[in-house]
Design a protein around this nucleic acid. Structure first.
Length: 734
DNA sequence: GTTCTAGAAC
DNA sequence: GTTCTAGAAC
């Protein structure tokens, strides 16, 4: 931003009298509005009042009306006011702009238009949550808000608008407002509007110089800070016309980059696939896929400046007129694209080996090194090997530094054909087969990426819908509060609200329809996303990600968990407490950092058991996890021990709750806190164990006989179950 | 996860 | 002949 010093100094010459102003801050959560206010109020000699919807309610959700009331009083007292709420769209600002007219004062806007990723990371840090889930949600909320962003214009009623696109701009604006004495005023007009901003642009150009010869510098205007835009102008020969920047009438491109897959050239390094043929295949498969990807982008990455594959692909893509906004090449380290390259790629592809093992060299070694051991663990949980031509998606645990530093959420392992006689499965010179396999590899890679994009779009929809349950709140203006809520500070109200759904077992039919639809959808869209989970196994995942779409089945929802009645209860009372953490598919994924989730799930489970116990004292509850669940998404079973259900039909049903395969929640929590993970008794042998009564331990030849026995057995439960709170009875609940 | 059903067990 | 299990398909 360029503040005109001379103009500032000329202020206040005509007016000696104190004249308050209204400064409306405009910015997403995490853009620095409160910091701005604090700074100005600390250094200024002018009396300021900060009108903050977050704090105005004294701990409760503030309202816009309260903010307006405080604004009116303050202006009457000749105090200037700082409106500290998001104010991202015109409608949200309108009432505050009107204050100018009613109090005959100037109304200014200070737009904190910082990169989305910065706002997101601040939002996450501010609320003290660094985990995957919270981070992802904060991101979704901030992104969603930014989509609705309407930058202020003078004709809304502002006399002055200051746009800040980076920290320096913000500092300058804080200095400007901080320096205002009671009688000063600032000149009217727009300041720091988007144009080729030297400060930011320099930073970008410095980077570009490093990674690519800088002989294609564009002179047209760009959006500073919009890192998503970087590659377009630099990585294709004849990148062509400016297609994206035109922000003529205030329509600004999003600050958050679209979903982006960075991938190395497959098989052309160690596997010695002919580079020219490979470039053909890349361009062809990209061309086939690019239009199926919405606004998502594909980026071919190579470390080397003189990369032959990049230049061949660039040329061929240009000939085919492939949209360079959606596909471009990039020179850089695939493990440092964001931190060193400023290119945010949420998904990266790994040129894997068939054993899916770390090390070796090249991209595989680099990615495993950068990701840390979590990638290996996560990969092993998905698959043990990979066939040439195939790809497999591995969600990156939030503990991985690739996740935290680079914003990579998924790694897709791809195995291409090998033409190198010194490596396994060499095709010798069979390029017929090699071409087919390489093509298959790229298509599989892009398909996996498309599945991730689909899943993330759904997630973002979900996050944007959830706050609507607070429909009494004030839409976007409450965004700061919403983010906080997303982070789990206040769930009780929502929980209470939804608790009313309990007992609506009739809704099962609806749920079953949902499940079927979901199965069909995921069968189509996510076929390759989770090869190890059948399409039918996605139902709980779907509920966890989109509880709002399953209102009839969900009996409780918070930021961390969803509770629903098991669709096929195996006992009189059988509910599932499902974690909402993306990537936490099953007990095997649970690590020490998930302890808070486990404890929350346990507490929620206990609460439900107690609720049921208060309705029926004779029940006994057990809380636990299946060692190897059939359904994706970590879920805690809260199940009464009568097992009186028509849905309990076979040995597996029984043994999954009555053998070591069932892991008590208390034990899981203890093991995870002591050993960092839970013991899994996954062996199939537990499923085929003889059928024994859960009370007297008597054996029974088949399910019907067992069921008739347990219907009458009144023996006490075995001693181990009575210890450590594994069983919950009425007396425990009191 | 369930459903369906062939064929084993009774 | 009927009951029950278990594997395939979804």
């Amino acid at each position: 931003m360029e503040v005109d010093d001379e103009m500032i100094k000329s202020i206040g010459e005509e007016e000696e009298k104190r004249k308050p102003i209204v400064v409306i801050l405009v910015g997403a959560p995490g853009s620095g509005k409160s910091t701005f206010c604090d700074h100005v109020m600390r250094v200024s000699t002018r009396p300021w009042v900060r009108v903050c919807q977050d704090t105005i309610g004294n701990g409760k959700a503030g309202t816009k009306a309260q903010c307006l009331a405080l604004s009116n009083t303050s202006l009457k007292e000749e105090k200037s006011i700082l409106i500290d709420r998001c104010n991202l769209d015109r409608e949200q600002r309108a009432d505050f702009v009107k204050l100018g007219e009613s109090h005959q004062v100037d109304v200014h806007a200070v737009v904190l238009d910082l990169p989305a990723k910065l706002c997101i990371s601040r939002s996450v840090k501010r609320t003290g949550h660094e985990g995957n889930l919270q981070g992802g949600k904060a991101a979704a909320v901030v992104n969603r808000m930014l989509q609705k962003k309407e930058l202020p214009k003078l004709n809304e009623g502002f006399s002055r608008i200051t746009f800040c696109q980076n920290e320096n701009d913000v500092q300058a604006a804080m200095d400007t407002y901080g320096a205002l004495s009671s009688s000063d005023s600032l000149p009217s007009g727009c300041y720091g509007e988007k144009k080729a901003d030297t400060k930011v642009q320099l930073g970008i150009m410095k980077f570009l110089k490093r990674v690519d010869p800088p002989n294609r510098v564009r002179s047209d205007k760009t959006v500073p800070g919009s890192l998503a835009e970087i590659p377009k102008e630099n990585h294709f020969v004849d990148a062509g016309q400016d297609q994206q920047m035109g922000s003529e009438n205030g329509a600004h491109p999003l600050d958050s980059p679209p979903p982006t897959l960075a991938f190395p050239s497959i098989s052309t390094a160690d596997f010695q696939f002919n580079i020219d043929r490979a470039s053909e295949i890349i361009v062809e498969t990209v061309e086939e896929f690019i239009n199926k990807l919405g606004n998502a982008r594909l980026v071919l990455v190579d470390l080397s400046h003189g990369s032959k594959i990049l230049s061949l692909v660039k040329t061929k893509a240009a000939i085919k007129n492939i949209d360079h906004k959606k596909f471009f090449t990039f020179v850089g380290d695939i493990t440092k694209l964001r931190s060193e390259g400023g290119l945010h790629c949420n998904v990266i592809a790994n040129a894997a080996n068939w054993r899916l093992k770390p090390g070796g060299g090249g991209v595989n070694a680099a990615i495993y090194n950068a990701a840390g051991p979590d990638l290996d663990t996560a990969t092993k949980n998905r698959a043990g090997s990979l066939a040439p031509g195939k790809a497999i998606t591995v969600p990156l645990p939030s503990t991985s530094s690739l996740f935290s530093k680079e914003g990579v959420t998924h790694v897709i392992h791809v195995l291409g054909p090998n033409m190198n006689p010194k490596r396994p499965n060499c095709l010798k010179d069979d390029y017929n087969k090699g071409t087919k396999v390489l093509r298959e590899a790229y298509l599989s890679l892009f398909e996996n990426f498309a599945s991730i994009v689909n899943a993330q779009e759904k997630l973002s929809d979900s996050s944007s819908v959830k706050p609507d349950s607070h429909s009494h709140l004030d839409g976007i203006s409450n965004c700061d509060q919403k983010v906080r809520r997303e982070d789990g500070a206040s769930n009780t109200e929502r929980n209470k609200k939804l608790k009313g759904f309990i007992g609506e077992t009739e809704s099962k039919t609806l749920y079953s329809v949902d499940v079927k639809e979901n199965a069909i959808n995921s069968g189509k869209k996510s076929q390759s996303l989770n090869k190890d989970w059948g399409s039918w196994a996605q139902a709980l995942y779907s509920v966890a990600m989109h509880p709002e779409k399953h209102r009839n089945d969900v009996i409780e929802v918070s930021d961390d968990i969803v509770v629903l009645n098991d669709l096929y209860p195996k006992a009189q009372k059988h509910v599932l407490v499902i974690s909402r953490a993306e990537g936490l598919d099953r007990l095997a994924d649970v690590r020490e950092e998930h302890l808070p989730v486990l404890r929350t799930m346990h507490d929620v489970g206990l609460k439900w058991a107690q609720t049921f116990l208060s309705e029926n004292e004779s029940l006994v509850f057990r809380l636990g996890y299946h060692s190897a669940p059939s359904m994706r998404q970590l879920h805690l079973h809260v199940i009464s021990q009568d097992f009186n259900s028509k849905h309990l039909k076979n040995k597996k049903h029984w043994n999954s709750f009555n053998s070591p395969f069932f892991r008590d929640s208390v034990d899981v929590i203890q093991e995870v806190s002591e050993q960092g993970k839970a013991t899994l008794n996954e062996d199939e042998k537990f499923m085929s164990m003889e059928l024994r009564c859960n009370r007297c331990r008597s054996a029974h030849p088949n399910i019907p006989r067992l069921k008739s026995h347990i219907g009458i057995c009144k023996s006490p439960f075995p001693a181990p179950l009575l210890q450590n709170g594994r069983l919950l009875t009425k007396s425990d609940a009191c």
